[in-house]
């Protein structure tokens, strides 16, 4: 895994498309993280009540564990994970490479919309960060 160097332009670019596609649709919080658990970009509601660093570390480890599970049953990887809560829902998607996009949203946002929008975003975020 190579070290990652972020420029203000790249982070700004990624945040602006995330704001456009997800935050504008009422998704509360979106994080882009890498496989080591670093936060590359953070959009939407600030982390009042959400500890972003812990969330990123656990997400990275959870995705790693899930990849192992996938291999055990003969899949290459699961590209997305979703957990539904009573009020909050969380959606994780692999963005190619080692990056993961985490979206937290309430019941006013449909899962289908989040999926479509995340799909649309994936290639752009990859291109901006991995250049």
């Amino acid at each position: 895994m190579a070290d990652m160097i972020l420029t203000a332009d790249a982070v700004g670019g990624v945040k602006s498309i995330i704001n456009d596609k997800l935050i504008s649709e009422n998704v509360q919080t979106v994080l882009v993280i890498d496989g080591a658990g670093n936060i590359l970009a953070h959009c939407g509601q600030d982390t009042d009540g959400v500890d972003a660093l812990s969330l990123a570390a656990l997400t990275a480890a959870n995705f790693g564990a899930t990849s192992q599970i996938a291999k055990l049953i003969g899949e290459n990887d699961f590209s997305l994970l979703y957990h539904k809560g009573e009020k909050a829902n969380i959606h994780f998607a692999r963005l190619g490479g080692e990056m993961i996009l985490v979206s937290i949203f309430g019941d006013d946002v449909s899962l289908g919309l989040v999926r479509v929008r995340v799909d649309e975003l994936a290639a752009d975020i990859n291109r901006i960060f991995e250049g």
């Binding site: 190579a2 972020l6 203000a8 332009d9 080591a36």
Partner: peptide, 15 residues
């Protein structure tokens, strides 16, 4: 892997 954020002037390392 380290993360170097040039915009925020931060270096993140994992030990």
């Amino acid at each position: 892997m380290a993360l170097i954020d040039l915009g925020r002037k931060e270096i993140h390392c994992k030990i």
